[in-house]
Amino acid sequence: MSGNKPSAIKSILTHAGVYLSLFLFLLPFLWMLLASFKTQVQILDTSKLFEITANFSNYISVFNEYSFLSFIWNSFIVGVGATVFGLILGLPAAYSIAKYKQEGLGLLILVARIVPGISFLIPWFIIFSKLQLIDTYTSLILSHMLVTMPFIIWVMIPFFEGLPHELEESARVDGCSIPSAFVRVMLPISGPGIVTSSILAFIFSWNNFMFSLILAGDNTKTLPIAVFNFISYSEINWGGLMAASVIITAPVLILALFAQKYIIAGLTGGSVKG
């Protein structure tokens, strides 16, 4: 290193660069939050952009006029269901693909990630209505599982590849079948991987719009659909829309804040490990 000065300047510049870009990336969220506390008149008046008044009327009307609580509940049930079942089907599959190098199956799962979701809509609707499953959690969970399960497998394959397989062998020596060795020995040490894939799977399900658009009905309407329905309602009520946006994004944002370590691992794990 050639002296302290240049490196200090460099450090300041780096910090400035990082924090400035961070600010730019967060600006839209600040904007949403700000607008959600404004009345329509304040939003329309561009001369007072950053005037803050603690006005909860938008939130109150969102909860009073629309049954947002039940939409939140719906989204939550579907998200949890799709994640849990995704894990039940996905974990053993990922384990087997990792252990026995079933690359063909791995590809098949990848294809599920690739196919444009829109190709499923018409057939699904026809099949699910024949089974009388439209507007039920079952159909929503099944459809969302097509998003969550491949993702879980995708994240878990490299994870399982990295686990020491001697552990399983020693459990086998103790008289356990492979499935029970998997459940009793391998799964407990896969905690971080499972947490990572579950959180992301839940977020994907929570955010899903297209599948719910077709399969949800009044009883199971999830948040994205409810918010979208809210848009074109007789007038453009920006404050209400932004309050609804805050409500829909807040849970995932909070989840992301608390579980950032896992999420970053999930997003980067599969690719960095190679």
């Binding site: 924090y19 990336f25 839209p28 929570w206 955010n207 995932v252 944002l253 804040l257």
Partner: peptide, 19 residues
């Protein structure tokens, strides 16, 4: 910083669109 950078990609697309 890393955590906050996660937010745009996990936010619900429909809401992002509206914003």
């Amino acid at each position: 910083v890393k955590t906050l950078f996660l937010l745009p990609m996990v936010a619900t697309p429909v809401a992002v669109g509206l914003i």
